[in-house]
Design a protein around this nucleic acid. Structure first.
Length: 779
DNA sequence: AATAACTTTCTTTTT
DNA sequence: GAAAGTTATT
């Protein structure tokens, strides 16, 4: 086992010169200084948005180094993104000097413990070259297991099963335990899959994202000496965005801090937006119970936003029940009025936003990089991209499809993963027949069945061609593939990885596959592959790292789009509200404030989910320094069709005294209810969750329906299908003898076969043939 | 076994 | 409107 130096440049802490550490604290306010210089024992910093929490943490670390309380390699700082870690590191280097900051452990939980597990892998029966499975890999594995177990993948989506397993893992519930806890049908299926899934990953020498946290805990529990080693190494532990840590992360840091208890966490319960991923606000709430001697420091002054923005933010969060009391204040100016932009469609919304951007850009000193457009779902970026492109406004989109998520990149990476870890079944499945080489699904099935039955390690099973019972033809095909992989495997240690990859993509036929496409897209894909090869070359020659291909592969599986900084320079930024966490912009647009979208339909039923959406709104609003715009569209193109949308309840909740309409008038709220049709209103809680999905037009692919708008007796305007059904149309309220009142969601079939899909309040969704079910129009 | 053509379903957010 | 799944054709 390698011995870790706890000295720095050969000196021990006693003979190192003490810097003028107080200088490090300059530029912080009094409370921040106190937080940064409290270096003994557990500390919790509770801080609102814009209060400089990350800044305080950064200065604290610099202070520790400057006062020689710790050597850089004794400092562990866990951040939410790799980018945040990089920025923190650079800042500390500025403060204490690059030389003295060298060796700090900074990064996300996942990347830090992946790095650690590389060193300690053998203790748990993995090799250091283990593969890291992302959500996509995991889902594929689960899908295969589900097929084997004859579980209907339509009824239970592999993703939902994966999420259930993931949350079980986060709670540290093992497969056997989980079986005993199942409460729903989906959980029952997840319980069947869970054990097998774990087995497959273990055999594949692979860890998923959850394993990267759980396996270290397992390691520390089983091997006390390893735990002690790391307890000693990391004398100071810092965790940023503590409100977004999950149970496993909590356990992990508790273990590591058990000895010295020098743990400093920073968080804001009001900004917790990752509960769906297992984040648990209870961690921040129970910090004081775990560490009774902990000091709590509150940073409540906001340096970021104007008074108006804070007032709006405050009124948002005030609607949540679950929260710690805290009061934000600012010395900043009152600021600009907050504007609500109401648009007809998402296209119109984008245009209006684009016009505002141009307007502010010419009127003020703000540049494009000071603007951000935030939205709830990645799919919303499209209309804004179109609008900005049309008027030549430069922009960047963060998130969505990142470089390492592209199909061609994942394909090449799968080849490389297979080379370093030939038992990686997910990668093998991905490349065994790409590019197509005559190994079809039947052959693959046979091959993997044989691997399972023989008990051989995957690759050994694939290699033993004669035993697997394949046809002669298939044996030749598989044999060729095996030879290809074996050849490159043998060259792995002797040739530079980038060179190897370059040859491999040609030999495997990826190059000709992309070239033969003969399309612009194929060309772009090929260029991407080239770029990947460049990245590998760069990694290999990088200073300080081990340059191993498997390290590169482990790193890129934890890479996100936000980590690679394409440079904000002179560009409008677009991203999801989630991705905006920790950032700030002078001018912020929050788009799509509509029921069903924000809050999402799935979140609008449950109080806890709804509160998380509200915190997300709070996070978005508090990104803004000076100007804030909220927008919504009355109709939106979703699920391939236009659907009507209703203004978000969040707009009815907020303090409207700081809100103005586009015309500059006071914003008129409808309070808690909104109009469905003339004379009818409904409260948000009783709103049919599918309401936003209603079609405005009834255009179905196959048949052309003549639709027209007409005036029905009670004055309601409805769109109807001339064919059959009369006024029973999407959106209509109907009554059924048995089911009572319901709302028509959509129609299908014509004439005798006409059917209506109706949502009944108590019963749920029903498909009814108009010929039999006598539906009466009410209203 | 591979492709093309057609049909269905689905979209939260992400380390 | 995309992606994944299904069916028909070579």
């Amino acid at each position: 086992m390698r011995q870790y130096r706890l000295e720095f440049d050969g000196k021990t802490s006693s003979d190192a010169p003490l810097e003028d550490a107080s200088q490090i604290l300059n530029g912080l306010n009094e409370v921040q200084q106190q937080a940064a210089s409290t270096t003994e024992g557990p500390v919790m910093i509770v801080a609102g948005p814009g209060s400089g929490k990350t800044r305080t943490l950064t200065h604290r670390i610099a202070y520790l180094i400057a006062t020689r309380k710790a050597w850089p390699n004794q400092i562990l700082a866990l951040t939410f993104t790799n980018k945040a870690a990089r920025e923190m590191k650079e800042r500390i280097e500025d403060l204490v000097g690059e030389e003295k900051a060298r060796g700090m452990w900074m990064g996300t939980f996942h990347s830090t413990f992946a790095r650690m597990m590389r060193v300690e892998a053998e203790a748990l029966g993995y090799t250091r070259d283990f593969s890291i499975y992302d959500v996509d890999d995991g889902e594929r594995v689960i899908k295969n297991v589900m097929r084997q177990l004859n579980i209907d993948t339509k009824q239970f989506s592999p993703r939902s099963i994966r999420n259930l397993i993931s949350s079980a893992k986060n709670q540290m519930v093992e497969p056997e335990q989980y079986k005993r806890m199942v409460a729903t049908a989906a959980q029952e299926q997840a319980a069947r899959v869970y054990g097998r899934y774990e087995g497959i990953l273990r055999n594949a020498n692979a860890m998923d994202f959850d394993d990267l946290l759980i396996k270290p805990i397992e390691l520390f529990t089983k091997h006390k000496e390893i735990l002690e080693k790391y307890q000693q190494r990391w004398k100071y532990i810092h965790i940023d965005e503590y409100q977004d840590t999950n149970h496993a992360q909590y356990r992990l840091t508790k273990l590591l801090a058990a000895g010295h208890k020098n743990i400093c966490v920073v968080g804001d319960d009001a900004q917790s937006i990752y509960a769906f991923r297992g984040a648990d606000i209870a961690n921040i709430l129970s910090f004081k119970q775990d560490y009774p001697q902990a000091k709590t420091i509150r940073l409540e002054q906001s340096y970021r936003s104007t008074k108006r923005i804070l007032k709006l933010a405050d009124s948002i969060i005030g609607h949540n029940k679950d929260q710690l009391e805290k009061s934000l204040w600012t010395e900043n100016a009152e600021g600009e009025e907050i504007m609500l932009v109401e648009a007809i469609s998402e296209k119109d919304e984008a245009q209006k936003v684009e016009r505002r951007i141009r307007d502010i850009e010419v009127r003020t000193a703000y540049r494009y990089e000071d603007f951000a457009i935030l939205y709830r779902t990645n799919a919303q970026s499209r209309s804004f991209e179109d609008a900005l492109r049309r008027s030549n406004i430069p922009y960047r989109v963060i998130g969505g499809m990142s470089f390492y998520q592209r199909r061609e990149i994942k394909d090449v990476l799968a080849y490389l993963r297979l080379l370093v870890n030939p038992n990686d079944i997910a990668s093998l499945r991905r490349v065994i027949n790409y590019p197509t080489r005559g190994i079809g699904s039947k052959t693959q099935e046979q091959l993997f069945n044989y691997a399972g039955q023989s008990g051989l390690p995957l690759w050994d099973a694939v290699r033993s061609l004669e035993q697997s019972g394949l046809t002669a033809r298939s044996q030749t095909m598989v044999g060729k593939f095996v030879a290809l992989i074996e050849q490159y495997r043998s060259e792995l240690d002797t040739r530079p990885a980038d060179e190897l990859t370059r040859d491999l993509v040609k030999d495997a036929g990826i190059f000709s596959d992309l070239r033969d496409e003969g399309t612009q897209e194929g060309l772009v894909r090929w260029e991407n592959v080239q770029e990947l090869i460049n990245a590998i070359a760069e990694f290999r020659t990088q200073e300080g790292g081990d340059g191993a291909l498997s390290t590169f592969l482990q790193q890129v599986s934890l890479f996100t789009d936000q980590d690679e900084d394409k440079g904000a320079g002179e560009r409008v930024t677009m991203m999801t509200l989630h991705a905006s966490k920790g950032l700030e912009f002078a001018v912020v647009f929050i788009a799509g404030l509509e029921e069903g979208l924000f809050p999402l339909a799935s979140a609008s039923q449950d109080r806890k989910d709804l509160e998380e959406e509200r915190r997300l709104f709070y996070v978005g609003v508090t990104r803004a320094k000076a100007h804030l715009f909220l927008s919504n569209a009355r109709s939106r193109f979703r699920y391939g069709e236009h659907s009507a949308s209703v203004r978000s309840r969040f707009l009815e909740e907020v303090d409207s005294s700081v809100l103005r309409t586009e015309a500059g008038e006071a914003f008129h709220q409808k309070k808690d209810r909104f109009k469905l049709k003339k004379g009818r209103t409904v409260s948000y809680d009783n709103l049919d969750p599918n309401y936003f999905r209603q079609s405005l037009t009834q255009s179905k692919k196959k048949r052309k329906i003549v639709t027209q708008t007409t005036q029905v007796p009670d004055g309601r305007r409805v769109v109807y299908d001339e064919g059959e059904g009369g006024q029973i149309v999407p959106g209509a309220i109907v009554e059924h003898d048995k089911f009572g009142q319901g709302k028509v969601l959509s129609m299908e079939g014509q004439g005798q076969n006409a059917k209506a899909i109706v949502y009944f309040q108590d019963i749920g969704q029903k498909k009814l043939a108009l010929r039999f079910a006598k539906l009466r129009l009410v209203g």
